[in-house]
Write a protein that binds this DNA or RNA. Structure first.
Length: 463
RNA sequence: GGCUGAGUGGCAGAGUGGUUAUGCAGCGGCCUGCAAAGCCGUGUACAGCGGUUCGAUUCCGCUCUCAGCCUCCA
């Protein structure tokens, strides 16, 4: 079988994945800064790396997935001040909300979720080492900076030269910095701000250092895969490499993975542009699994355009797959089918979930045919379909339950009422009162319920 | 200005140096009281201009357009 290949941002090409330790994978992903609800862009990171983890496990790897939580930074402090609450109360609230969103999207919990505020000791240790090795210096204002010129490979990840960049293009340069691209490792506290004591005075960690500290702490100085959104490539991940490699003298990460953005009207969805939809908003109208399907329906490095039409298509697509799984009891297939082979080939090609999903549809099409002709083979085909869906985190629900589940958190007609109307309609049908039967069917359709007659039975689903 | 990446049929979205992606929508048919679901059939898409080649949507060059990074951002 073909080997797993992953596009490495560092080399800008697909590379055969070889773990540092056979059979094991260490994976670190930059998680959320918890001061607000997650939006669809965050959902993409969650779902993509959940898929990566699931597929690595599917291939037999033992995966240690670490995703940090940034629970101290300027925005958190600002929000907490606005709300007049302790910043820890704010962050805890949004950590809980984030976990709820993840559950809605069928995202499995990472093995570890380290918090920046719980890692202050490791962070301080790393900054001390950087100062000793003359990669960092303290400014007169109590801040500690990393000296980008001290790290010869600075720019390797984002493929840029210090000279080529326009410092101060959009923001004023801090006079305490020796080089405009030097970045903060430790930030001095202003009066009233949350702070921790350090050799350089009261303050808090800079954003980049926490990830260096937490990743090496959880996974070692050198680990397999580091991931995150495209926008973290520079400066965040560039800085992480500089900090970690300068501290340990070892290679930091073998493979860097970056997912593309979610767009709205051809523009990046982001907090600063204010053009974002929260996961919570979208769940009012769509099932969590529909959002998940939408995310996986394009390659993780491609842009993903958000629109209701896209979500509606995801709904139709999932409906088709779940419908194929109805009325059949899957029986595990002992041999690896062609579907599964194609599926693995697609996934091995840099997690091409879009192509992998097309295999699910081919499988579903055959399953629909086999259900009428060869129940035994159909049972195996159904099992194949589920086998492939598992690493994608799809089709894990009972088909009937899924199809009858409400399509969002909005008000919907109750199951009892639906069943009552179906009974009424069955009587009408027995009486050959087609007008009444059709009227009831139309009435339910308006409320998002589709009826399907087969013989003397009527089944229903929500749409 | 520097650096990335992208431009595929009505829409979304894969892929390939010569052969059906896939889904949704459309059209025709089978099935059905009628539907729905399902099945069958159905569409000479690959930004433009050059070049390499027996042959390019696929490789190379240029042009145009779009997006992203160079502050915080997933």
């Amino acid at each position: 079988m073909s080997a797993l290949k992953i596009f490495n941002t560092l080399s800008r090409q697909k590379e055969t994945f070889i773990p540092i330790e056979e059979g094991k994978v260490g994976l670190y992903v930059c998680g959320m800064t918890v001061y607000d609800f997650c939006h669809i862009g965050h959902a993409r990171v969650m779902v993509v790396f959940d898929m990566v983890t699931r597929y690595l496990k599917y291939l037999g790897y033992s995966v240690k997935y670490v995703r940090n939580i940034t629970d101290i930074d300027d925005k958190i402090i600002a929000r907490a001040a606005e709300a007049g609450e302790d910043f820890t109360a704010l962050t805890q609230r949004f950590i809980d909300e984030m976990h709820q969103d993840e559950a809605s999207l069928f995202v499995e919990k990472p093995a570890l979720e380290p918090l920046a505020t719980q890692s202050i000791g490791d962070i301080l240790g790393m900054i001390k080492t950087l100062i000793e090795k003359e990669h960092a210096y303290a400014g007169d204002n109590g801040d500690v900076y990393y000296s980008v010129e001290s790290f010869k490979n600075y720019g390797q990840l984002s493929g840029r030269q210090l000279d080529d960049m326009n410092a101060g293009e959009r923001v004023e340069v801090d006079k305490n910095k020796r080089n405009p691209f030097d970045f903060v490792l430790w930030k001095a506290a202003k009066p009233g701000e949350p702070s921790w004591s350090s050799p350089w005075g009261e303050g808090r960690p800079g954003w980049h250092i926490e990830c260096s500290a937490m990743s090496t702490c959880c996974l070692g100085n050198h680990f397999d895969i580091h991931g995150g959104g495209m926008d973290l490539q520079f400066p965040h991940h560039e800085n992480e490499i500089a900090q970690s490699e300068a501290t340990t003298g070892e290679t930091f990460v073998n493979t860097w993975m970056h997912n593309g953005f979610v767009r709205i009207d051809n523009e990046k969805m982001s907090k600063s542009l204010g053009n974002f939809f929260t996961v919570r908003d979208v769940l009012k109208q769509y099932r969590g699994e529909e959002i998940r399907f939408f995310v996986l329906s394009s390659h993780y490095r491609s842009p993903l355009n958000y629109s209701d039409e896209q979500l509606n298509e995801s709904r139709s697509a999932l409906e088709r797959l779940y419908t194929a799984l109805r009325n059949i009891e899957p029986v595990t297939n002992d041999v690896k089918s062609d579907y599964v082979r194609c599926f693995e080939k697609a996934m091995n090609d840099d997690f091409n979930s879009a192509k992998a999903i097309s295999v699910l549809f081919e499988c579903a099409n055959d399953l629909n045919k086999l259900k009428k002709t060869d129940t035994e083979q159909a049972a195996k085909t159904a099992a194949d379909l589920l086998l492939m869906a598992q690493p994608l985190g799809l089709l894990s629900q009972n088909p009937e339950d899924y199809l009858q589940s409400t399509t969002g958190t909005n008000d919907a007609i109750a199951n009892d009422e639906i069943n009552r109307l179906i009974d009424e309609r069955l009587q009408a049908k027995t009486d050959k009162n087609w007008a009444l039967a059709d009227q009831i069917r139309d009435q339910l359709k308006e409320q998002g319920v589709i009826l399907e007659d087969s013989g003397k039975e009527t089944t229903w689903r929500r749409q």
